[in-house]
Deep mutational scan, measured.
Amino acid sequence: MKVIFLKDVKGKGKKGEIKNVADGYARNFLFKQGLAIEATPANLKELE
């Protein structure tokens, strides 16, 4: 799953980066902790 990092995550990505991560990792950790959001077309447009 592609995500947009909202904060730096050690060993995974830095704020503003778009990366592929495991679905479970994204849903169970990154999204719940507010560290990333899903890289949907709408979210990508907001990032620009």
Rank of each mutant, 00 (worst) to 15 (best):
M1T: 12
K15M: 10
I18M: 07
N43Q: 08
K15A: 13
N28Y: 14
F29D: 05
E48G: 13
P41V: 13
G34N: 09
K45I: 12
E46I: 14
V21W: 02
A42K: 11
I4H: 01
K7L: 09
K7Q: 13
V9A: 03
K7T: 11
A39V: 08
T40R: 04
K14S: 10
R27Q: 09
G24I: 13
V3N: 00
A39L: 08
T40K: 05
G34Q: 08
K15G: 03
N43H: 10
E38V: 07
L47N: 08
G13E: 02
G13W: 14
N43D: 06
A22S: 15
N28P: 00
M1H: 05
I4Q: 03
A36I: 06
L30W: 03
G24L: 12
G16F: 10
K14F: 12
N28H: 12
L35W: 11
P41W: 12
L44E: 05
F5Y: 06
A39D: 02
M1G: 03
N43I: 13
G16T: 02
V3H: 01
K15R: 12
A26Q: 06
L47Q: 09
V21Y: 05
K15D: 01
G11F: 08
G13P: 00
R27V: 11
D8K: 04
K32R: 11
L6R: 03
V3Y: 01
L30A: 01
E46M: 15
A42W: 07
G11D: 08
L44D: 04
F29M: 08
E38A: 11
P41R: 09
V21N: 00
K15S: 07
G13H: 11
G34T: 04
L30E: 00
T40Y: 05
F31V: 07
E38Y: 06
L35S: 04
M1I: 15
K15T: 08
I4L: 11
D8F: 08
D8E: 07
I4A: 02
K32P: 15
E48M: 15
A22P: 14
Q33H: 15
G16M: 05
G24H: 14
K14Y: 12
A22N: 14
V21A: 03
F29P: 02
N20T: 15
G11T: 05
N43T: 10
K15N: 04
A22K: 11
N28R: 12
I4E: 02
G13S: 03
E46G: 12
F29R: 06
N28T: 08
L30Y: 04
I37N: 02
K19N: 04
E38W: 07
A42G: 11
F29S: 06
M1Q: 05
A36Q: 00
Q33V: 09
G11K: 05
I37P: 00
L6K: 03
G34R: 08
L44F: 08
A22Q: 11
L35D: 03
F31A: 02
K14Q: 10
Q33A: 11
G11I: 02
G24A: 14
F29H: 10
L30F: 04
A42Y: 08
R27P: 02
G24W: 15
D23H: 13
L47P: 06
K14E: 07
L47E: 06
L44Y: 06
Q33R: 14
G34I: 03
D23M: 14
N43K: 10
Q33W: 15
F29L: 08
F29E: 09
L6I: 11
E48V: 12
E48R: 12
K15W: 04
Y25M: 06
G16E: 01
I18A: 04
I18N: 01
N43P: 04
E38K: 08
F29W: 13
I18K: 03
G34V: 03
V9N: 01
F29T: 09
I18Q: 05
N43R: 09
Q33P: 01
K12L: 15
L47M: 12
D8M: 04
L35P: 00
K15E: 07
A39G: 04
R27K: 12
L6E: 00
I37S: 04
F29Q: 08
Y25W: 10
K7H: 12
K10L: 13
A36Y: 01
R27Y: 11
K32H: 08
E17K: 03
V21T: 03
P41S: 10
L44V: 10
V3M: 03
R27I: 14
P41G: 09
Y25L: 08
A22F: 10
F29N: 06
K7N: 06
K2W: 15
N20A: 11
L44A: 05
D8N: 12
L35E: 03
A26S: 05
L30V: 01
G24V: 12
K10R: 14
P41I: 11
N28D: 13
L47K: 07
K7P: 00
P41T: 10
T40E: 04
I4M: 08
L47G: 07
L44M: 11
K15L: 09
L35A: 04
I4N: 01
L30N: 00
F5I: 01
G16L: 04
G24N: 14
K12Q: 15
L30Q: 00
P41K: 10
N20F: 15
A26I: 09
I37E: 05
A22R: 12
A22Y: 10
E46L: 15
F5V: 00
M1P: 04
K10V: 13
K7I: 10
T40G: 04
G24F: 13
A22V: 09
K19P: 00
A22H: 13
K2L: 15
A39P: 02
G11H: 07
E17V: 03
A26V: 09
K2H: 09
A36K: 00
K12A: 15
V9R: 02
K10E: 15
A39H: 06
E48W: 11
L35I: 07
K10T: 11
G24P: 11
A22G: 10
A36P: 01
N43G: 07
V21F: 07
Q33M: 15
K2R: 14
A39W: 13
V3D: 01
T40I: 06
L6S: 02
G11S: 05
A26H: 04
E17W: 04
E48S: 13
E17D: 12
A42H: 12
I18F: 04
K14G: 06
F5G: 01
G34M: 08
L44W: 06
F31S: 02
E17M: 06
K2E: 08
A42M: 11
A39Q: 02
K19E: 03
R27A: 07
F31P: 01
D23W: 14
T40L: 06
Y25D: 06
K32D: 08
F29I: 12
F31N: 01
V3S: 00
